[in-house]
Amino acid sequence: MKPLPIEVRSLACERDQRELFTAMSFDLQAGEVLQVAGPNGSGKTSLLRILAGLLPAVAGDVHYGGATVFSGRGRERWRQNRLFIGHAPAVKANLTAEENLSWLCALSQPVAAQQIAAALEQVGLRGFEDVPCHTLSAGQQRRVALARLYLEAHPVWILDEPFTAIDKAGVAALEQHIQAHAADGGTVILTTHHSLEHLEGVRCLDLGQVA
């Protein structure tokens, strides 16, 4: 699937009667990486959840390839094109890494067991395929969730704090993977408190300044 441009038009978000942001507009072309930055409580997660389609926006619209992602055909296409990994990794403690991944991928497109094994190897979890996830550490569980980035062919990634609980080597590998995805023409929107300045071509949206 080829990524299409994303246009955010005067988006507004309100949480518990507090205005987080209003009239937010930006464009994102295929192949761009957008880091959403800002202090705690500035609405980073809310913005990502609105973009993903979990949280209704108070006002404004998001277009993907010219069609709104909030209803109709545009929403259908958006659902097939974006991958969201939130704060909670969606990893079931009582399932093994392989079972978790095969289910999470099946929610959009089923994948074969060999592919899952290969992806787990990529995130440094070789040999943990058949281990129930409650025996894994927080960082390892996060890696299980992130293995989806190696398995699913979504052009747009929306990642909320993907680097949480991950060690240095893991962060470097993930940064590389994100860059490779962008170089392939994919789009990435992510929040992190970790600096991405050393990566080329990362745009930054500072919610602390927008508000």
Partner: peptide, 17 residues
């Protein structure tokens, strides 16, 4: 509840199914 707490439910809601 457990699906809600570990984030699985979000993935269900986001899925095209």
């Amino acid at each position: 509840r457990s699906d809600y707490e570990d984030g699985s439910l979000e993935q269900w809601v986001l899925s095209p199914h």
